[in-house]
């Protein structure tokens, strides 16, 4: 049982074709999740009646269960729910015609929303109260103060956390292969089992994930440097 070094390169080229799908699976949920997270944060911050309890439960549950559960619950649950609704409304629509990737994206977006809401919240709470008071005192409306004063500072402070979650979601996409998505891990699995060279294929996949993670970290490092330019030294 030796290792076929040459095959790693063959597998690498084959698996690399799945990078776009993996990036879609990672980026789309983060973008949708950001808006979910923002909404949830605002609901929790302003203690909106009724919604507040739901938002708290949502964040707690999604942070307290493995992401594979979210994918499976939605993958099996939503079709059941939709089918019964369509059947009762006599709409001839089969949920089996919805591609699986839609469910995966939906599930991961909900997961991302829960994690991002905590990040946004900690970012906002890191901006001192005086900033909002100062904005109000020069006549800004709450909306203006949030948009121009609060969020830019909160976002700058959340960059390290946002990087972590981006890398985390890149890695989370690997479990989409359990619902037969052909992303990096899924493709690696196909390449591995069709050539019976498991180790080589997963080494190649590991290198791709590693490379992508390093690139994400590098980009965020550059962004952080730019964003923090103004706050170099002096009093904060």
């Amino acid at each position: 049982m030796g290792i076929d070094i040459g095959f790693i390169w063959v597998a690498f080229k084959e698996i690399a074709k799945a990078i776009p799908l993996t990036l879609v699976l990672a980026i789309v949920p983060i973008i949708i999740g950001f808006f979910i997270g923002l909404a949830v944060t605002l609901i929790r911050e302003y203690k909106v009646k009724g919604l507040y309890v739901i938002a708290n439960g949502y964040v707690s549950f999604f942070r307290g269960t493995p992401a594979i559960m979210h994918i499976m619950l939605i993958y099996f649950g939503i079709p059941l729910l939709l089918d019964s609704i369509f059947a009762s409304l006599h709409i001839p629509f089969q949920t089996s015609s919805i591609p699986i990737i839609v469910f995966v994206l939906f599930a991961l977006s909900l997961t991302a929303g829960a994690y991002l809401s905590e990040i946004i919240r900690s970012g906002i709470s890191s901006v001192t109260k005086g900033q909002m008071e100062a904005a109000h005192s020069i006549g800004m409306s709450t909306y203006q103060a949030m948009k121009r004063i609060l969020f830019p500072q909160a976002l700058a402070k959340s960059i390290p956390n946002l990087t972590n979650i981006s890398v985390g979601f890149l890695h989370l996409t690997s479990i989409a292969f359990l619902v037969s998505q052909k992303e990096l891990t899924g493709t690696a699995n196909i390449v591995a089992s069709s050539n019976l060279k498991f180790l080589e294929a997963f080494i190649a996949a590991g290198i791709i994930y590693w490379g992508l993670s390093i690139i994400i970290e590098g980009i965020s490092h550059l962004i952080e440097k730019r964003v923090k330019e103004y706050s170099k030294g002096g009093v904060t």
């Binding site: 996409t173 690997s174 292969f177 997963f202 994930y209 490379g211 390093i214």
Partner: peptide, 8 residues
């Protein structure tokens, strides 16, 4: 830190 647990 750069690879998913499933790959590991």
């Amino acid at each position: 830190r750069g690879t998913p647990i499933i790959i590991q």
